[in-house]
């Protein structure tokens, strides 16, 4: 049996990759993909604990996370498309009307 730490380190790696993408990339869609990566790593942690504790409830919460991720994907991409229509760019450096 694989130690539980291996799965946890794997999901931590995925989460860190997501943080890197959110903090350093300029394109809003790549930031978006990085958020999906972070949600997936949280799901992997849920399933790992669910499997190693013999409790199915953890898998149920993955469903809830997936539903919220789907809603977030739809609304987020709609916002990105609306931004592109208004400013002709999706670079997060040039979308700064809320900055002062």
């Amino acid at each position: 049996m694989i130690p539980i730490e291996y799965y946890l380190i794997l999901s931590a790696f995925m989460f860190i990759m997501g943080v890197i993408g959110v903090l350093t990339r300029k394109n809003a869609i790549i930031v978006f993909m990085s958020i999906e990566l972070m949600l997936n790593s949280a799901n992997l942690t849920f399933v790992t604990f669910s499997s190693y504790l013999g409790n199915v409830t953890g898998q149920l919460f993955v469903f809830f996370v997936m539903t919220v991720a789907a809603a977030e994907a739809a609304v987020g991409l709609a916002i990105i498309i609306a931004l592109f229509r208004n400013k002709q760019t999706v670079s997060i450096d040039e979308i700064n009307i809320l900055k002062w």
Partner: peptide, 17 residues
């Protein structure tokens, strides 16, 4: 959900922007 739904949505987003 992810490969069939969200990823297709993201690819559409890439195409449209």
């Amino acid at each position: 959900v992810y490969v069939g739904g969200i990823l297709i949505l993201i690819l559409f987003g890439v195409m449209l922007t």
